[in-house]
């Protein structure tokens, strides 16, 4: 549905997007993840035909964005980073205008505007001026605009920015509901969002793609070593040496200290469960074992390790 090939965008000497290639299949939700300034917005702007790429090409909904831009745009819904609203128009006027310029036939206009307002849950604000809406409503009116003409492809630049937690959940559900009929690319720097909504993730940093995979596969990729978190009450004694002496333990670090309670991160050899030995060691010394759990590598760790120069430092840090 979307195919990006060797896309490069330079602003003068600055390369914002550098040789990016990926595919999105029909009905899929692709998460576009990266720190601020990584090139997410630029990539999306190229895909929506806002600006042409310096090099490379992209096909959206079967149409090359450079050769048949109007056809591609007709099939694309786009929510930019700041919702593009006219403050002096009411929500209904605004959406009607959007319906006209995206080529929704006159007969269907009213129904489409109504349907998209309901889907984006802004129907109660239909006659309010866009400029008077709260940030959350503005964002949702922007979303209503994007889905208005029932496009094949939806490109959403940080669709949950500025929403409160409840609205974030509702918006995620809405986006999930749109997949299947629509192909969605959404950008975010909020990590849980990706694992909750997206089937695949593109991690981009400094304009380059550093990883493309499913959220689970990315997490699994990081779980080479199995780390444990152990919290003990050792009565002021340091347990580092004790844990280090255990068979199969590679590394031990003090993680946190809360009075007499000390937390350690114990890293075991791959494929070896050291929990039994840890528990035994603690109990035989007469310490209190308050917590013992495997530390799951989160997408957050994956993200940080892929987007930070000194990956190992950050993982431990």
């Amino acid at each position: 549905m979307i195919e990006v090939k060797h896309l490069t965008k330079r602003y003068g000497r600055v390369t914002a997007v550098d040789d990016v290639s990926f595919r999105v299949e029909k009905g899929e939700i692709l998460g576009f993840l990266g720190p601020n300034g990584a090139g997410k917005t630029t990539t999306m702007r190229v895909l929506t035909g806002y600006m042409p790429p310096t090099e490379g090409s992209a096909v959206v909904a079967g149409f090359d964005i450079l050769e048949q831009p109007l056809e591609a745009k007709r099939r694309t819904g786009y929510l930019p980073e700041t919702p593009p609203l006219y403050p002096e128009l009411t929500v209904r006027e605004y959406l009607t205008f959007c319906a006209r310029i995206t080529g929704v036939p006159r007969r269907e206009r009213e129904a489409r505007v109504k349907a998209s307002m309901e889907k984006a849950r802004v129907a109660d604000m239909a006659n309010r001026h866009c400029g008077k809406l709260s940030k959350g409503y503005k964002q949702r009116v922007g979303l209503a605009q994007a889905i208005l003409h029932n496009p094949d492809v939806l490109i959403l630049d940080e669709p949950t920015a500025g929403l409160d937690p409840k609205q974030i959940i509702e918006t995620r559900e809405l986006i999930k509901g749109l997949a299947g009929d629509h192909t969605v690319i959404l950008s975010t720097h909020i990590l849980p969002e990706v694992s909750q909504t997206c089937q695949r993730v593109v991690i981009i940093n400094k304009g380059r793609v550093v990883a493309i995979d499913t959220p689970d596969a990315l997490t699994a990729r990081m779980q080479g070593h199995q780390s444990m978190y152990v919290q003990v009450d050792a009565g002021g004694a340091d347990a580092t040496a004790t844990f280090c002496a255990l068979p199969g333990v590679v590394q031990v670090q003090r993680a946190d200290v809360r009075g007499a309670l000390v937390g350690y991160e114990v890293e075991g050899e791959p494929g070896r469960d050291v929990r039994r030995d840890i528990a035994h060691a603690v109990v035989t010394r007469g310490w209190g074992l308050l917590e013992l759990r495997p530390m799951r590598v989160s997408l957050e760790d994956v993200f940080l390790s892929l987007t930070t120069e000194d990956a190992q430092e950050v993982r431990r840090g």
Partner: peptide, 14 residues
């Protein structure tokens, strides 16, 4: 300034 130009430029308009 308000970003609505992005709406026009990404709509199927010449």
């Amino acid at each position: 300034r308000s970003g609505t130009f992005e709406l026009l430029l990404t709509a199927p308009l010449t």
